[in-house]
Simulated assay, not measured.
Amino acid sequence: MGKIGIYGSSFDPITNVHLWTASTVAHRCKLDKVIFLPCSSKRKDKTMKTSDAHRWEMLQLAISNNHTFLADDHEILQEAWEVYTYYTMEHFKQKYPNDEVYFIMGADLLVDIAEGKWKYDDELISNNKFIVMARDEINMVKTISRSPILRNHDDGTKFHLIDKGLSMEISSTYIRDEFSKGGEPRYLLPNACYEYIKKHELYSS
Results as ranks from 00 to 15, higher is better:
136 D>Q: 13
116 G>S: 09
124 L>R: 01
97 P>E: 02
117 K>T: 04
97 P>I: 00
125 I>L: 10
109 L>F: 11
77 L>E: 13
135 R>N: 04
136 D>T: 06
102 Y>V: 01
81 W>Q: 13
123 E>Q: 15
130 F>N: 00
92 F>T: 00
75 E>P: 10
114 A>I: 00
80 A>K: 13
126 S>W: 04
94 Q>E: 14
118 W>T: 00
86 Y>S: 11
110 L>H: 01
88 T>H: 08
120 Y>H: 14
74 H>N: 12
80 A>D: 13
110 L>N: 05
98 N>Q: 14
93 K>F: 04
103 F>Q: 02
78 Q>P: 04
67 H>Y: 11
113 I>Q: 01
124 L>D: 06
66 N>P: 09
104 I>F: 06
134 A>W: 04
119 K>I: 07
95 K>M: 09
131 I>E: 03
68 T>H: 15
86 Y>P: 05
92 F>L: 00
77 L>N: 15
66 N>Y: 09
99 D>P: 07
64 S>G: 06
64 S>P: 03
66 N>G: 10
101 V>I: 12
124 L>F: 11
96 Y>C: 03
68 T>P: 07
65 N>C: 08
115 E>V: 04
91 H>G: 02
112 D>R: 12
113 I>T: 03
131 I>C: 05
92 F>P: 00
123 E>M: 13
102 Y>I: 03
75 E>W: 03
92 F>Y: 14
134 A>R: 05
115 E>H: 14
116 G>M: 03
110 L>V: 05
116 G>V: 04
79 E>S: 10
109 L>E: 07
133 M>L: 15
76 I>Y: 07
86 Y>C: 10
99 D>K: 12
110 L>A: 09
91 H>Q: 07
118 W>Y: 15
124 L>Y: 04
72 D>Y: 10
103 F>H: 02
117 K>N: 12
95 K>D: 04
125 I>V: 15
84 Y>W: 12
115 E>Y: 09
78 Q>H: 04
99 D>A: 14
93 K>N: 12
69 F>G: 11
80 A>F: 02
67 H>G: 06
111 V>A: 00
74 H>C: 10
95 K>G: 04
61 L>W: 10
111 V>M: 00
